[in-house]
Amino acid sequence: MIELFNAALMLNQSAMRGLRESTDAVRRGLLIVLFVGVLVGAVQGASEIIASATPERTVAGVRAQVDAFVESLTLGANSEQFQPVIQFVNENEEAFYELLTELYSLPTALPWGVQLFFRWLASVVSTPLNYLAWLLFTVIFTHIAARQLGGQGSIQQMLGLGALSVAPHALDALTFIPAIGPTLRLIAWAWGLVILVVATMIAHKLDSGRATMAVLLYPLLFSLLGFLAFCGLLIFVAALGPVA
């Protein structure tokens, strides 16, 4: 599996062709999804647990978010307009943090540590499902477009090969690092997109142009429809005129 994982990251086309001809392409592809999901879930879950190890730390996390929100309102262009909101938060926040601390300190049948362990385990088992849901959605629409464009691959081949596009998302495990997290996420997404194009090319024996079109066709179509719906909504609101 590690060989296939590396081959996916290196866009190794001969390994991908081997996977296409394999009778257990789906199993091997989904093992990559499971591996990446468990890895990312374990690291992200651990990071979240460290941040909420005690009631005080959890409340400190909430306080940091509220402070950032208030700061963004204060520094924003419409800060005067939001003055009542800022004043409301400033007047009530300390009592709110006391309430939160009391809530998180309430006794439970099992110790707080057990809940933290359950939450970590939940992150480990549910992150692969998040990747799987997204993968299935992507693969189904890419497969439909590829078949419309003359592709010959089966859904099993497309799913097995398409699953390789999840491999770069192992980088998501590092997205808890504040400064580089979003950049790593973007790199993983772009890298995954390139792997999906190559996977579609190999699964359906298409040229690179058609494979790219197969991957992008439905996302672009949905974006266009969304944009048109948004414009329609704007026109409708404008036609209604000012409320007062």
């Binding site: 409301f88 007047e91 009530n92 009592a95 709110f96 006391e98 309430l99 009391e102 809530l103 309430l106 006794p107 439970t108 049948a109 099992l110 057990v114 809940q115 359950f118």
Partner: peptide, 23 residues
């Protein structure tokens, strides 16, 4: 349910906490 506090205790804490808030 074994790792959640008693709902009645949660209600009490919320009522007490709200009564401390200026708003």
């Amino acid at each position: 349910s074994l790792t959640q506090p008693d709902p009645e205790a949660v209600s009490e804490v919320i009522l007490r906490g709200l009564s401390r808030m200026p708003w």
